[in-house]
């Protein structure tokens, strides 16, 4: 399994990066400018849904 972890490292890195950027954006944003008006569902989605969570947040979750 050790080999597998090394193999997957870049993917995990990308996922973490996306998650962190999404979370930073979410924290700095007023609740009023988030789709649905509440922040916590997005926080859960970004943290627990790999890759897709942050991407959906970036494209649909933010209202400007």
């Amino acid at each position: 399994m050790e080999v597998d972890m090394q193999l997957l490292a870049p993917l995990i890195g990308i996922q973490l990066l996306l998650m962190v950027i999404a979370l930073i954006d979410l924290v700095r944003r007023d609740a009023g400018r988030v789709a649905g008006g509440k922040k916590w569902p997005w926080a859960l989605g970004i943290i627990f849904i790999n890759t897709l969570g942050p991407i959906v947040y970036f494209f649909v979750g933010r209202k400007d």
Binding site: I14, Q15, L17, L18, I21, T51, I55, F58
Partner: peptide
């Protein structure tokens, strides 16, 4: 953050 998201998603 488009300048970060797009390259990251492309890599992914």
């Amino acid at each position: 953050y488009k300048i970060l998201i797009v390259p990251i998603v492309f890599i992914a």
